[in-house]
């Protein structure tokens, strides 16, 4: 693995220089929010921010995406295109929890038998530069309870760690090393930088004070699909779906057709297990008619089904669903309550 040092005041210039050669998305200030935007001349990429409100999953799995186009011809309707290929791009400034979400999404979209070409194309052509959380940004962060770490490199091609006056840049994948060639001359990292990083890593791990019994509740979930506890969590839920839209690992989608004149397209759009229509069949039958069942599905999918299938919890502990739930449903509390049953 190549390791370099980047002076703090040089980073912005390096990222801006990259953006002259290829598409670069970076966190930038937008009124009171921080959003990933295409970095254009004169824009300042933020390296010192907490996290974006929206998870960056949309770069590989957009909210709405055209899967194919078709047009009416004399013979009926014929396919006219499968959507455009993705451009080479850099996603700068991803937090480690979100970078790790890509590894989890890969397990769904990049399987041996069925590969999702839309997701994989974008994923393969994107180089991810993550920013280690030297100071975990929120009291709601709980990455360490679900298999992550505030300074993890999982899912990243390049990891930047803020060492005070400089960044330690670790080029962890071949894709990352390829990007290094485009970043100009950077001084090699010394052992001291490594040692500082180790120290910071321990401190940042300790700074995560929110803990949930992530794996511990699995045996209970295995046995208690039916349990009075499930009647207690959904009562205040509005079924708004905010938790699933903001979640970096939620991947459910709908497929629908849109027609305009003689041109049409088939699109996919984010969907949510929080909605009653999600599972409603044409016959009228619905296996999940109540919000209780839908909440159970959401929790079971993340903490049991995904673990059964992929040996990983489908949660990265980013805390977005906790922060933005309009009725303050807190998945950490639910998990911990289960662990006490």
């Amino acid at each position: 693995m190549e390791k370099r040092l980047i002076k703090k005041d040089a980073l912005s210039g390096i990222i801006n220089k990259l953006s002259e050669q290829m598409l670069v998305y970076a966190p930038v200030k937008d009124e009171d929010n921080v959003l990933f935007k295409v970095l254009e001349k004169g824009m300042e990429p933020l390296a010192d921010y907490s996290n974006t409100r929206n998870a960056p999953k949309n770069f590989f799995f957009p909210k709405t995406e055209t899967m194919m186009r078709y047009m009416r011809t004399e013979r009926g309707i014929e396919l006219s295109g499968e959507g455009e290929g993705a451009p080479e791009m850099v996603l700068f400034g991803v937090r480690p929890c979100d970078a790790r979400s890509f590894i989890l999404l890969d397990k769904v979209f990049d399987q041996e038998k069925y590969k999702d070409p839309y997701y994989i194309d974008k994923r393969e052509k994107t180089t991810i530069i993550s920013l280690a959380c030297v100071h975990p940004p929120y009291s709601t962060c709980f990455c360490t309870s679900v298999g992550g770490h505030p300074m993890s490199s999982e899912g990243a091609d390049v990891v930047l760690t803020d060492l005070g006056d400089k960044y330690l840049a670790e080029f962890v994948t071949p894709k990352g090393e390829k990007l290094l060639e485009k970043m100009g001359d950077l001084s090699k990292a010394d052992d001291a930088a490594e040692a500082t990083k180790e120290e910071l890593s321990k401190k940042s791990e300790e700074a995560i004070t929110s803990h949930v019994a992530g794996r511990e509740i699995k045996p209970w979930l295995d046995e208690n699909f039916e349990h009075p506890f499930w009647d207690t969590i959904h009562q205040s839920c509005l079924a708004c779906g905010t938790c699933t839209y903001l979640c970096p690992t939620c991947h459910c989608f709908d497929i629908s057709d849109e027609v305009k004149g003689s041109d049409g397209k088939r699109i996919r759009t984010w969907d949510s297990c929080m909605y009653w229509l999600f599972t409603k069949e044409t016959s009228g039958h619905n296996p999940r008619t109540s919000q209780k069942q839908r909440w159970r599905q959401r929790l079971m999918h993340k903490f049991k089904y995904f673990v059964d299938n992929f040996d990983a919890i489908a949660c990265v502990g980013c805390g977005r669903c906790v922060m933005y739930c309009p009725v303050n449903i807190d998945i950490r509390k639910i998990v911990n309550d289960i662990s006490k049953l």
Partner: peptide, 19 residues
């Protein structure tokens, strides 16, 4: 079994029964 389906290849997430 029958369930509401979209993708048919285990990605869109709606036809699960347990895992």
């Amino acid at each position: 079994l029958e369930m509401r389906m979209k993708c048919g290849i285990g990605k869109c997430g709606r036809c699960n029964v347990g895992e």
